[in-house]
Simulated assay, not measured.
Amino acid sequence: MIERFSPRGSIAAMHTDTPTPPDLNWQAQALCAQTGADFFFPEPGSSVREAKLICGMCEMRSACLEYALANDERFGVWGGLSERERLHLRRTDPR
């Protein structure tokens, strides 16, 4: 229908950006996938110590943190860092 009212060839010549979904294969290998979300998304004011211990043993920690920073995850423990720690990292990162 749009082509009918557009100049000939303009629709095909348009550049369309389709977002590429992030590679989430790391999530299946992450220790948190085997543990449960309760540790990683605690109630406000609760300890995140257990989550950080699990993250410290996880081989996917860097991919997890990279994902959280790239997607502006604001809640929970990602890549071994709490919300406050990720916010501090974003503020001090020179990128």
Rank of each mutant, 00 (worst) to 15 (best):
I11H: 14
F40H: 06
E85C: 01
A30Q: 02
P7I: 00
P19S: 13
T35C: 05
R91I: 15
T35V: 06
W78T: 04
Q27I: 15
T20F: 06
N71T: 12
F39R: 14
N71Q: 15
A51I: 07
T35H: 05
I2Y: 09
S10A: 02
D23E: 08
S47H: 00
E73C: 14
F40W: 00
F39D: 15
I54A: 08
S62Y: 09
R49L: 09
W26I: 04
G76H: 11
V48G: 14
L65Q: 07
E73N: 10
A51K: 15
C58L: 00
K52F: 00
A33L: 01
Q29H: 11
F40C: 10
T20R: 13
A12D: 11
T35E: 05
K52I: 10
Q34W: 03
P21N: 10
R61N: 06
M14E: 12
A30W: 05
A33E: 00
E43G: 07
Y67V: 04
M60E: 12
G9W: 01
P44L: 06
C58Y: 03
N71A: 12
L69D: 00
R90I: 03
P19G: 05
P22Q: 10
A33V: 00
E66N: 15
M60I: 07
H15E: 08
F41H: 09
R91H: 15
S6G: 04
R95N: 12
S62E: 09
S6A: 08
Q34H: 10
L87R: 15
P7N: 02
S10L: 06
C58Q: 07
D93T: 06
N25Q: 14
L87S: 15
P19E: 10
D72E: 07
R74C: 06
Q29V: 04
H88L: 11
L31Q: 10
D38T: 01
H88T: 15
P19F: 07
P22M: 02
E3A: 04
I54Q: 08
M57G: 02
F75A: 14
L89A: 08
M14Q: 14
A70C: 04
P19T: 12
G45V: 02
E83S: 09
V77E: 15
I54R: 07
F75K: 14
L65N: 04
P21V: 06
F41Y: 12
